[in-house]
């Protein structure tokens, strides 16, 4: 898969989790990419994000979630 398609796929996964009500509760990055743990009540999933574009995208989503949690309009 091209980097572009892979990043689109990864962005879609991020959107899917967020749309389904998952919240980000843990994030770390290492040489293998970005690892995001989402949770929804008892459910927990870990997403590995490989592409640079999707890592940028995820950070923007994380900012949105943070602002929403702080009750600010985005």
């Amino acid at each position: 898969m091209s980097d572009h398609l892979l990043s689109k796929d990864e962005m879609k996964k991020v959107d899917d989790y967020l749309d389904r009500g998952f919240k980000v509760h843990y994030v770390y990055e290492n040489l293998s990419g970005m690892f995001v743990e989402f949770n929804r009540q008892e459910e927990e999933v870990c997403l590995q994000i490989l592409t640079a574009d999707a890592r940028k995208y995820f950070a923007a989503k994380l900012q949105e979630q943070t602002l929403l949690q702080e009750g600010m309009s985005i």
Binding site: V27, E29, K56, A60, L62, Q63, T66
Partner: peptide
């Protein structure tokens, strides 16, 4: 399509989700 964000801003947001 995504809002402006610097590396420093990004790291600060991410760090608030670290254990």
């Amino acid at each position: 399509t995504i809002a402006p964000m610097t590396w420093n801003e990004r790291q600060s947001i991410i760090s608030s989700f670290a254990r």
